[in-house]
Design a protein around this nucleic acid. Structure first.
Length: 275
DNA sequence: AAATGATCCTGAGAGC
DNA sequence: TGCTCTCAGGATCATT
């Protein structure tokens, strides 16, 4: 499931190969995604150069002179570049043909999205899907103090507060568990009962977890420039707790526990992580 | 207003 | 071998 590091890696790969290039055609093979893919994309975008490839949360923002294309990978989506004339694979839903480079969105579960936002509709930051997002974790304005303040305003479990994305974006289900383990905070701790000192630890843990994942994305990044092009939706994550139920904690050996919070699996070490 | 639950979808894996 | 069943998850939306 693409989390922020995967999306950022994808963004960098795309940026290298298509930014500045002219879009020759867009082919929508399957419009039924999280929302219907914006109709008439080809007419909207044909012949336009891609000005920039940005990211907000897990949304990729492809900037054109007259608007922005929002692309979300959902939980099973991936973008890969293909050789001209390569056969369509199953679940290749949208295809962008740039000068010399073709990029395809493959998304088996179709939880992803491809939506056009014209400049006429206002700044893309005020798009309904982006307006409510929390701060970017790598933004210098994301401080321990800010994290603590955001947590103070909520009574839900810390795990769910992180996952919600209203405080800070990009901490998905895997990294929420991993960050809380690194910060030694029990996932069920009410958010508003996390002390400033622990919020500081959590802040550092979030950055550290995301940065490490981003580093390991290097191998995936290379695939965007190479000829093979096999991005793989998943990083090879050396998880401390995620998906390790009953396996020994890497720190103390205690069996890792799995619980469910808000219909989502959470993994933690009952000894290392405290309320 | 915040918190909770339902929902979209397909592939993987379990169980028979 | 092959069928059926359950589960997974990001994020929005409806409901409490």
């Amino acid at each position: 499931m693409p989390e922020l590091p995967e999306v950022e890696t994808t963004r960098r790969g795309l940026d290298m190969i298509i930014t500045g290039k002219r879009l020759l055609a867009v082919h929508v093979h399957e419009a039924r995604m999280r929302w219907p893919v914006t109709p008439g994309l080809n007419l909207i975008l044909q012949g336009k150069p891609l000005l920039a490839c940005e990211r907000r949360g897990k949304y990729l923002l492809l900037r054109f002179e007259h608007g922005t294309l929002l692309v979300h990978l959902g939980m099973s989506g991936s973008l890969r570049h293909v050789q001209a004339g390569e056969f369509l694979r199953k679940h290749d839903h949208v295809e962008w043909c740039f000068e010399g480079v073709t990029v395809r969105l493959n998304d088996p579960r179709r939880f992803g999205a491809v939506l056009w936002h014209a400049n006429d509709a206002g700044p893309v930051a005020s798009h309904p899907l982006l307006a409510g997002l929390g701060i970017e974790p790598f933004d210098a304005a994301f401080t321990p103090q800010m994290l603590h303040a955001g947590l103070q305003a909520r009574s839900v479990a810390i795990k769910q507060a992180l996952l919600g994305g209203q405080i800070v974006v990009g901490v998905g289900n895997i990294y929420a568990s991993e960050s809380l383990f690194a910060a030694r905070i029990h996932p069920r701790t009410p958010a508003n009962r996390v002390s400033p000192a622990r919020a500081k630890r959590l802040h550092a843990a979030i950055l550290d977890t995301l940065e490490k994942a981003l580093e390991s994305g290097g191998s995936t990044l290379r695939n965007y420039t190479g000829t093979q092009g096999e991005p793989g939706a998943y990083f090879d994550i050396h998880a401390a707790v995620y998906d390790r139920e009953n396996q020994p904690c890497r720190s103390c050996g205690t069996p890792i526990r799995k619980i469910v919070q808000g219909q989502r699996a959470t993994f933690y070490c009952p000894k290392c992580q405290r309320y």
